[in-house]
């Protein structure tokens, strides 16, 4: 049933394989190659640069103590965190853009990040939470509450209300919670001190102890995302067409909201709020692979970690001897892409 729906959705799209659009095996291979290169760079580059043989030795369990420490305790967990966070943020962005049919939708713009940040700040200020692995649950809970509220308020006007309303709601509620977080942290210097490290969005010192509890959540989110992808093709044609094709919109909505919460909340819990990955990557991927949501999701899943890892690598070497958090770098890479995007003659309107 869903298979037929998806086929119909693709067929109804304006063109199947227009000029200049890469064939699936080609871009998947290209994306995986870029991803491998990013992983290797992330293992090699840093304040303690390692030559390739030393890296291989250390990975195999040999080499000097220092190299083993750098690779095993720092680079490998950090790279794993970058992979997971990138994949999760990108997929969350692609899902929410497809579902709201809003090219500007992004977990950050829709306020999900500030919900997560507020929950973490409350935990730090009132419950003395200081262990990053405990932020996870707070961040997810905050993300869930905000996603549901933003969607509830934003979609209350029915489909006619349009994406602007959802964006306004997201920006408004996001600002409210950011304001609450500011008020909370400014009155408590110790919370302020902890929050400012977290809120830049960084992969520094995110070990396996932080990452492992989140991985099941991220995996569940990715599975949900994959399951809803065919239905999203029908959603792209409008709610009426989707319904006519037999898509159960209520079920898709619950699945998308759950997936976005798991993915964005989990990723934010690990790395803090990293902006732009969810906004930018699905757009760039759409240029390459076309409008089919299944391909967009797959492409985003591959391309987002590349962006996060490269941003992280760049942040390690850009301002030696200190580090620039990955979240800052993604904003500096992402904003120009967003601007270029909206300056194109045929920029998609709201």
């Amino acid at each position: 049933m869903t298979g037929e729906t998806a086929e119909a959705g693709t067929a109804a799209a304006p063109s199947r394989t227009p000029r200049g659009r890469a064939r699936t095996p080609v871009w998947v291979a290209g994306g995986l190659a870029a991803l491998s290169a990013a992983v290797v760079l992330s293992l090699l580059v840093g304040a303690n640069p390692l030559p390739v043989p030393a890296l291989l030795d250390a990975l195999a369990g040999g080499g000097g103590d220092e190299a083993r420490f750098v690779v095993g305790e720092q680079r490998v967990p950090r790279t794993a965190a970058g992979l997971a966070v990138g994949a999760a943020l990108g997929t969350a962005g692609a899902l929410i853009q497809a579902f709201t049919r809003n090219p500007l939708a992004d977990p950050g713009i829709l306020g999900v990040n500030s919900g997560a940040a507020f929950a973490v700040a409350v935990g730090m200020a009132f419950f003395g939470v200081s262990d990053p692995s405990a932020y996870v649950w707070l961040a997810c809970a905050g993300a869930l509450v905000l996603t549901v509220v933003v969607y509830g308020v934003g979609a209350a006007g029915g489909p006619a209300a349009g994406p602007i309303r959802l964006t306004v709601t997201g920006v408004a509620l996001g600002a409210v919670f950011a304001g609450l977080t500011t008020g909370l942290t400014l009155t408590r210097p110790d919370t302020f001190e902890r929050m400012r490290g977290w809120s830049a969005g960084s992969l520094l010192e995110r070990g396996f102890d932080v990452l492992l509890p989140v991985l099941p959540l991220l995996a569940a989110g990715l599975v949900l995302a994959a399951a809803t992808a065919p239905a999203l093709n029908a959603v792209a044609l409008g709610p009426d067409v989707a319904r006519a094709q037999g898509v159960h919109l209520g079920r898709v909505r619950v699945a998308v909201l759950a997936a976005v919460t798991l993915l964005a909340g989990g990723a934010t819990a690990v790395a803090g709020p990293i902006a732009f990955v969810g906004l930018m990557v699905p757009h760039v991927v759409r240029w390459t692979v076309g409008p089919d949501q299944r391909r967009i999701l797959l492409g985003t899943l591959i391309a987002s970690p590349v962006l996060v890892l490269l941003s992280d690598v760049l942040g390690r070497v850009a301002v030696l001897p200190s580090e620039m958090p990955a979240g800052v770098v993604t904003a500096f890479v992402g904003a120009p892409v967003l601007i270029a995007l909206v300056r194109r003659p045929k920029a998609s309107g709201l």
Binding site: A200, M324, G327, L338
Partner: peptide, 12 residues
């Protein structure tokens, strides 16, 4: 876009 760049620079 410009805001996001500036605000992350400010955070840093």
């Amino acid at each position: 876009g410009v805001s996001a760049m500036l605000s992350s620079f400010n955070t840093w």
